[in-house]
Design a binder for these strands. Structure first.
Lengths: 188, 188
DNA sequence: GGCGGCATGTAAGTTGTTACATGATTAA
DNA sequence: TTAATCATGTAACAACTTACATGCCGCC
């Protein structure tokens, strides 16, 4: 039995990465991923909460005081990163990037589209285009925001690069949609 | 308890889709996915073999004769699609496309790259670029091949569109890499 | 008083990966 | 004859989703 220690479990590093910026609760982590990362990452509560527990047990994260000044229980449990956690994060950041994982159901359907009518396929592609155009508007808004208060995040420059990836790839999606739509339209 | 029947299990449809073109064995399915679909899909043996069994049990696929003319056992088990299977495939093809799923570890690392040196990040991006340039050459070769024997597959046109998706998106990757590399280089 | 958002958490199920076992055939 | 490739399969595990339970808080 060969033991391989390639760092799978990416949830761990996502959480450590976010905690390295500021203390956060599980709920806040989920919100950030949904809003800012959704175009290249996803996580569910079912992964985040257990992982936070595990990180605490391993000494990579620490739960902050859960009492208010008045002695009452706070509603949310915030976690901060420990030194060991920061070290673990940096170790992962230096490791080679594993192949991204993608699964485009649209392309699968298109590949097999012989079995259905062109107009059905057309609908699928139009739907794809609409959804991704909405995301493009979100990119624009976020980029504008970032350019306005330039020092909101110290990792401002890196965020812009990530955003730019989305912009470029989503633009490619859009152009492809236009091309494919016109091809299918001609052949109807 | 609410039962929702959105067709998850995509392996099923991938197999049905491939079988709708020609009878195939599990091994051949895996090969096709690895070679032709790898840029937008993946499957492992651990999914394919059990799924084939299930499809047969459900009457959506049928195992072909496993004896040669000389009465000896063939080494591979080929499956063909049944009428019920073809119907099931078409049903799925008409259903709305579910959101594609993507996970770019590179972007996650870039987002958190404050914690590491620019040169490490640069290496990651160069590596990403190299890997994807190799894929671009594969796209080119496959496209050329398709344009040569124009009737090799009856779904020739659809395949070209799928390929074109890869071409466009991979080009966007490449341009992004160049930009990001030059930005990081300037700031070193 | 009820609704929506905030907030934490888990149990059950599904999906997907990996390592391993096994054996046939082919090419050097 | 030995290594590679073809070929099938499964068991154990890891990852991930989903539905559900629970309760707070503010506000209309």
């Amino acid at each position: 039995m060969v033991i391989l220690s390639t760092s799978k479990n990416k949830t761990k590093y996502l959480i450590l990465g976010l905690l390295s910026e500021q203390p956060l609760s599980g709920y806040e982590i989920k919100k950030i991923v949904d809003i800012r990362f959704s175009f290249f990452w996803n996580e569910s509560f079912g992964q985040i909460y257990p992982e936070l527990k595990k990180l605490e047990a391993e000494g990579l994260a620490r739960m902050l005081e859960t009492l208010n000044e008045d002695g009452k229980q706070k509603s949310s449990k915030k976690f901060s990163i420990t030194q060991a956690g920061q070290k673990e994060l940096e170790k992962w950041l230096k490791e080679p990037v594993e192949k991204e994982m993608v699964r485009y159901e649209l392309l699968l359907k298109l590949y097999f589209s012989n079995s259905i009518s062109g107009s059905t396929m057309l609908e699928h592609i139009r739907e794809f285009q609409i959804i991704h155009r909405k995301q493009q508007m979100i990119f624009d808004k976020f980029e504008e925001e970032l350019n306005r208060d330039i020092d909101m995040h110290e990792n401002h420059r890196a965020i812009l690069m990530v955003l730019n990836f989305g912009q470029k790839v989503w633009k490619a999606y859009d152009e492809w949609c236009n091309e494919v739509i016109s091809i299918i339209d001609q052949n109807k």
